[in-house]
Design a binder for these strands. Structure first.
Lengths: 120, 120
DNA sequence: ATTTAATAATGACAAGTGTAGAGATGAGTT
DNA sequence: AACTCATCTCTACACTTGTCATTATTAAAT
């Protein structure tokens, strides 16, 4: 399955919220981008056509959607592709960004350390 | 600047090779994908129009191209976007892939260790 | 029961992308 | 000088993507 950037943005919200509606997602997205309800709904429709999300119930006429695929099932191939395409043979920058800008949990750090120990 | 996936693939080769020609790049890409010379040349033309690569000389009629932008100038924003879009708040999988599948140099590992030490 | 305001469905369009064929052109070969 | 083959240039086309307007529909308010 291949999702566009915008589709990815929407399904990410969906994973975060567990379930949501078109009006709610529109509001959420409007915090960062100025797009109409129509635009967001189109993306939702496309996600549905791709079977990435599904309708689970209704509030009045409002459709409630939920993810139909797992986050990791999308992440894995994307990560592989990204690293090979963007960081081809030179992962240092990525590493750097991860360590400096992302908030790694203590758990993540401990994991990192354990891997490093093994490598020695 | 925004490059498509295919454009990215080609300019990555270019960074690796320092300079190259359409026929050479075509051959290289054919190792993994079955595309015609025309297709590859179109991508090269688009990269040129976007000023991502430039002509530096000729061998006979064959044009030699070289990157016109730095690898890191593209990587940085892409990495930021990617992590926020794909790994939204959950960088563990990415970390994992980096550590397990990518060949990190000793230098990279030492760097990692030094960052970890500082965090303690 | 009517009206209204919100939500959904449909259709559309320009730009970008992957893909390639056809024709021009010229460097090297005979 | 003529020819040929590799390479370049130009054009094209279907598909995806971001974007939205319009129209249909119906729950809720009057």
């Amino acid at each position: 399955m291949k999702l566009s950037e915008f589709e990815l943005e929407v399904i990410n919200l969906m994973w975060e919220l567990k379930e949501s509606t078109a009006p709610a997602l529109h509001q959420e997205i409007c915090k960062t981008k100025n797009v109409t309800y129509s635009t967001v709904k189109t993306i939702i429709d496309r996600l549905e056509k791709k079977s990435a999300i599904k309708r689970i119930k209704n509030y009045g006429r409002t459709i409630v959607y939920a993810p139909a695929i797992e986050q990791s099932s999308l992440q894995k191939p994307l990560i592989k592709t990204f690293i090979s395409k963007v960081c081809a043979g030179n992962p240092r920058l990525l590493l750097n960004h991860l360590l400096e800008d992302e908030k790694l949990s203590d758990d993540d750090l401990a994991y990192l350390q354990s891997v490093l120990d093994k490598r020695k």
